[in-house]
Amino acid sequence: MTAIQESAQRDIEANPYRPWPARITSITDLTDKEKLFELRLIDEDVREAFQFESGQFVELSIFGVGEAPVSISSAPSKQGFIELCIREAGDVTGAMHRKKCGDVVGLRGPYGRGFPFTEMKGHDVLLVAGGLGIAPLKSLINHIHDDRHEFGKVTILYGAKSPAEVLFRYQFDMWQHRDDFDLILTVDQPDETWTGETGLVTRLFDKIDVDPANTYGAICGPPVMYKYVIEEMRKKDMDVDRIYVSFERRMKCGVGKCGHCGVGHQYTCVDGPVFNYWEAMNLQGAI
């Protein structure tokens, strides 16, 4: 860390509840409910100090409305900007959806424990996303993409309700032709234009080969999905401590104080949101 970063770090640490102004630099409509926001922290030193890993989240802060935890969708290798994929679901996300490019909101973070990127290097990676669960996994996918030569086989299974709800379709379309990413998309409710797979994401496991001794798994999706996807990974003999899951809970403060995100004996915000399956099995009520 540079001296400037250290001084910014001290400012940030002086009050962990203080959000830092960030400008919305780009807004992309993804679906009817989700938009992708690109943000840039305005203070240069705070921006420099903001170093994150895939799987971590921020507290998005809109004064007058409140705060909401949002996972980071961009890769740590993209410096200076962060991307948040936001579904309009509550007060804060609703207010965010009404923001325009150039507007200023607040950010705190990054928080939590992300995916073990360094540990995953040198191995195959199997990523499974359901619905909005693709948001944190996209950070990991992009990060792997940027260091592609350091990984073995990379397989992405992504399920959405309908073709209209497939997120980041432009990115996946761009990758469909690549032979170093095995990408399979599936939807529950296809329309006449859909050429991909249909049905639940678990059905895609018949179509892939997994080398269990050499594969890391990463899962993110709606709560109901985890159990079934983990079952499929276990059927492929993947190790319990190499299957990683990311949980969504009510991370209100983000810093392990407010208590809202408690899961089992842990707090999602500081102990997670990424846990391996062995840890998750030991969290009562988690899956």
Partner: peptide, 24 residues
């Protein structure tokens, strides 16, 4: 305005509920 914190309780129904309806 002001950002205010108040005591809360894990015994309240909405304590572990997330934005889109799921209540853990």
């Amino acid at each position: 305005g002001v950002r205010v914190r108040t005591w809360d309780s894990c015994q309240f129904k909405e304590f572990a509920a997330v934005a889109h309806g799921q209540n853990f």
